[in-house]
Design a protein around this nucleic acid. Structure first.
Length: 254
DNA sequence: GCGACAG
DNA sequence: ATCTTGTCGC
């Protein structure tokens, strides 16, 4: 237990301690972050999704010069319409180390999510779910924190070995790593590189695959994630343009 | 020392 | 992830 040596832990109920564990601070040392991931991973539940989610969200990041720009796009999957967008930015307080992205992006994404008026049933995150060295990628971490269903979608492998899936939309293979860390390589569009999909929290691999497929009918990434990616980039660019007008130090080279 | 390494 | 114009293609 990470916080068991804390004298303040005396007299707390089991549930209270669990909440404190899940609502941990983000500015940890690398070894403490790793230990926390391992402990939190035991609380992740890869349970089947009851039914396809209606209100879904995608969260992605753009960054420049140490600043992280997060965008969350909420969509009504029955109509395919965007119903809300939230953004947040801050200087990164954790290094960009593979396996620890949640500590760099997590707090900023969460701030944007907390600003939402809507309550999405399912979140897509740019990164991995439980297919992670310590079974707790960003999507699993944030899903657990919010106690909401979540899926990780990445364009690159983090752990394990795999064979490429067939060429048809929906073709997929499974990542060989650990039974505790299911993941798939999923072809969402013919002729387009596959996606690495893994369940985050409150969903299983089958659900992660079917929901990702259901929401990516035209592009490589599921629509909420694709929109969030575009929105984060736009947010970052707006911020840059404002800074350039206010502070005209940097001019483009001839 | 060398290769691996989400965004 | 970002640095970056025009350009090829549906």
């Amino acid at each position: 237990m990470i916080f068991s040596r804390d004298s303040k832990a005396k007299g707390r109920t089991r549930e209270t301690l669990k909440r404190e564990l899940i609502n941990h601070p983000w500015n940890l040392t690398l070894p403490r972050a790793a230990a926390l991931q391992s402990e939190l991973a035991s609380h992740v539940r890869l349970t089947p999704l009851k039914e396809p989610s209606v209100i879904v969200a995608g969260a992605d990041i753009a960054e420049s010069a140490g600043q992280v720009f997060a965008a969350v796009v909420v969509m009504d999957s029955s109509s395919g319409k965007v119903i809300e967008i939230s953004r947040s930015h801050a200087f990164a307080r954790f290094s960009a180390i593979a396996g620890y992205l949640a500590f760099r992006h997590g707090p900023i994404i969460l701030k944007a999510i907390h600003q939402l008026d809507h309550t999405p049933e399912l979140f897509f995150f740019a990164g991995h779910g439980v297919c992670h060295p310590r079974f707790l990628g960003l999507a699993a971490h944030l899903g657990l924190r919010m106690d909401r269903a979540s899926i990780g979608c990445s364009s690159e492998r983090l752990v394990g070995h795999y064979d490429l899936p067939g060429p048809k939309r929906g073709d997929h293979t499974v990542v060989r790593f650990s039974p505790q860390a299911p993941g798939a390589v999923l072809r969402t569009q013919p002729g387009i590189n596959p996606l690495f999909v893994s369940p985050g929290h409150k969903i299983d691999l089958m659900g992660a695959i079917s929901e990702t497929l259901r929401l990516s009918t035209k592009f490589r990434f599921p629509e909420p994630l694709r929109r969030a990616h575009i929105e984060a980039g736009r947010y970052m660019r707006e911020f840059r343009d404002n800074a350039r007008i206010t502070e005209p130090k940097k001019q483009s080279p001839r």
